[in-house]
Design a protein around this nucleic acid. Structure first.
Lengths: 330, 330
DNA sequence: CTGAAAGCGCTTACAG
DNA sequence: CTGAAAGCGCTTACAG
């Protein structure tokens, strides 16, 4: 920067002014500085800039596992949305471990980023509030519904109810649910299960706890859960995977066992990952408006960075959803 | 840091020594400093450290699209491998655009990272060499086979030949290939196609250009490519997708059209993404040893950062592979 | 083993 | 509109 100043015959400050698009600068001076920059191949040192300004132009994204299709697709979209606004995204995988989630809230990861997009799975609102610090923090997903925090989510309960209603309308009465977590009622699993129960109730169909199976939200979790139901002799004519990979794992297991989908068992999921369209049969699911979630969560976080506050109150944004009726549950 | 020094009654340098695990430091002094750190809740400022040391403890990863399952799974593993060694990974999506790839080699992204893991798709070795700078750079994948660069890849040609041989052994003679790129012979597509041709040759089966279809490496690309072949009336009894998503897209299209897999058409892919196991029918494919690729590429890059050089020569590492014979092509 | 000083490359008040 | 100076929070020779 000193070299540039010397080459252009101006002071350091003037170079800095040009670099930072300061308004009141003589066009001729500006040109001279820009020429010097081009000639010397000068590039501003971001680390120095960060040290001085206290900003890194990076946003943190904390999620459990980047290899999970939903998170991979979401991360890709978030990175593009951030990039359009001059920010980068630094991803941290928590593996749903509370220690990793707590570490993401302070220490190096927090320091390296100006704000955080956080998908907490194992820690609660109080633990977050205690460590949140003063940098902006936007929750993603639905495990934390707390007025203290900004949150971007989707209409989980409503969407699950709509999907369940669709299954009921097609004549299914014994709808198994895969991926429930007994201990947890606030997260996606709990909300989607609520939606399921509400739809049953409205249709006058009795809720049967024997149809509710737990399982990790992976393909093998879905396969294992449906295998457990089949082995235990529980009767069912439809399967609702609380997310797509659960449903796809179940679909695989059902077909292996010689059941026909959708004739014997209808299968539905939640998320509408790219794979859902191309499964065989293609998967009926809920599209959670991922583009909207990505766009709005970045916007909200950058608004916070710009200092737009709502008097200490968190903003809660709910993206729209859309039912995707496909072959697995027409 | 000044506060810590004052609280512990030592100088700045001593605090720095403790922080950096300097060897020759009196245990009592060290303890006093550590107590002061704990008491004050002090955390070292990484930006300042970076500015002074010139190191960021971040590695860059350039790939086309994080939402592609192969890259998502690879990125997740690379991040874990890097994390174990005290590094973070900053991901940049190039969308296979040459401009984005060039930008990743210099400018902000390069500055923010100590070394780069690079999957070049649209630019050539000379363009890279010209801009590479002096920071370490390890190529991932096989588009650049140049002695100037370090490279971690897999035995593409050999693996594709083995897979093709398996299809031939099972009695298939008309094996369509999906995802070829006519203009390009050096990349994965070219190498895998070479392996295919070699296996045909060894089996005395004539190569038929009509069986080679191009297509983007996505599910819709595979579906479209196989649809094109079917519509043009070309006869085939097997499909080799040059990667798994191509094969899975093709599988979907074949089943939609009422063809039976594997009875009418066998289907095979390449990558062994998690989805392959759970497709219906499950997908025969090649496992490219992704764990080994992740581990060794991180190790190689960190070796370079530590200054271990091989006299200007690039190291070429080839990971092993394994055939995964499943239902789609038994 | 430990201290005092310089400096990494910027931005930010403060003058003029 | 532009300049001279201070300082962000560390690490690194250099002494002792």
């Amino acid at each position: 920067m000193n070299d540039v100043a010397r080459a252009a015959g101006v002071s350091l400050k003037t170079v800095s002014n040009v670099l930072n698009d300061y308004e009141f600068i003589r066009p001729a001076t500006k040109q001279r500085v820009q020429d010097a920059i081009a000639e010397l191949g000068y590039e501003a040192n971001l680390t120095a800039r960060s040290l001085r300004s206290g900003k890194t132009s990076m946003l943190g994204l904390v999620l459990s596992d980047l290899a999970a299709p939903y998170y991979a697709e979401l991360a890709a979209k978030l990175m593009k949305a951030a990039s359009r606004r001059g920010y980068r995204v630094l991803v941290e995988q928590s593996d749903a471990q509370s220690e990793a989630e707590l570490n993401a809230l302070r220490g190096p990861f927090r320091q390296l980023t100006d704000g955080l997009l956080f998908t907490p799975l194992s820690i609660d609102a109080d633990a977050i509030a205690e460590r949140a610090g003063k940098k902006p923090l936007v929750m993603l997903g639905e495990h934390i519904m707390d007025p203290r925090f900004d949150l971007v989510t989707m209409k989980n309960e409503e969407a699950a109810a709509a999907l369940t209603k669709h299954l009921l309308n097609s004549g299914r009465r014994r709808i198994a649910v895969l991926g429930a977590s007994p201990e947890e009622s606030a997260g996606s699993a709990g909300l989607r299960l609520n939606g399921y129960r509400r739809a049953l109730e409205q249709a006058g169909v009795a809720f049967d706890p024997a149809l509710i199976a737990s399982g990790v939200w992976r393909r093998d979790g879905g396969a294992g859960a449906v295998a457990g139901l089949l082995d235990s002799g529980v009767q069912f004519d439809a399967v609702f995977g609380l997310n797509d990979v659960l449903a796809l794992g179940a679909l695989h297991e059902l077909l292996i066992r010689g059941l026909r989908v959708p004739q014997d068992v209808a299968v539905a999921g939640f998320d509408d990952i790219d794979e859902a369209r191309f499964a065989s049969p293609s998967l009926t699911t809920v599209s959670p408006g991922m583009d909207e979630i990505a766009e709005r969560s970045i916007t909200l976080l950058l608004d916070r960075l710009a200092g737009r506050e709502t008097a200490g109150q968190g903003v809660h944004i709910e993206a729209g959803f859309e039912l995707k009726i496909r072959e697995s549950a027409p």
